[in-house]
Amino acid sequence: MNALLTSAVAGLTAAGAYALLGVCAVFTFRLVAVVNFTGAAIGTAGTFSMIGFISLGVPLWPAVVLGILVGTLAGALIGLVMTQWFSEATATTKAAVTAALLVGIVALGLRLTGGQSPKEFPTLFPGSAFRLAGVEVTVASVLTVVLALVFTLLADAFLNRTRTGLHLRALSERPMAAELLGVRVRILALLVWAVTGAFTTFALMIIAPQRSPDFMSLSLLVVPALAAALVGAFRSFPLALAGGLTIGIVEGMSSAIDGISQYRGILPFFVILAVLLWSQRGARWDEAR
């Protein structure tokens, strides 16, 4: 039992990351109606450019800012593609576009970053926050959890309490209608893409030193992230947060159980299956189809 608790706590690092990325995915979906497979890849691009800036001699924190800027631009660039050519497309087509883009981005990223040769990833927030069940809980993992929590609250408040948030929701549901309301659709959509780009970049910068820091592995964090978002049915921020934390912690726990630990990578899949089977009991029809 103690071993289980220990490994559960050890899974917290991953949990925070999954939760944060999951909440970002929900944010993107609710505001621009895109299931974004490139989410983590955008953040990864920003993170690797930070490394690039550091190797050019830029000090750490300015490099962080520059890296986030690159991530923001990368997000906006994908957003530009989506708004330019796919603003009227169905959700399925949009998802197909991001899935295809992921293939290209990973290939490009691996090329530019030189495959698996390790980069020196600076630990932005070194040290451990506290010790729990014999595990040092690092500042970084606490920070990702807190950041995910803050982002959840902010996003919820933004969407439900502010005028811009309402506009954006109108936009995601009916782009044409929003246009008629006089909302500057494209600018707002681009803004959303940019903001999520910035957030995922920052999130990945924090967690990159604790992950296998190559472009592909980091980009494929999108799988548990989308699993978390699915727990929240791409609507609820708190549920997505809970989903991400659960996947991470369960993944950590499973490493303590012999016989399962080898297959712990398949946990997101089972979480998705369980959630879907539970939540989709009734027939649902796609809106407007």
Binding site: A10, S212, S217, A256
Partner: peptide, 9 residues
């Protein structure tokens, strides 16, 4: 790939 903390522990 993935978090190694549980294994180090």
């Amino acid at each position: 790939q993935g978090d190694l903390t549980p294994y180090v522990i």
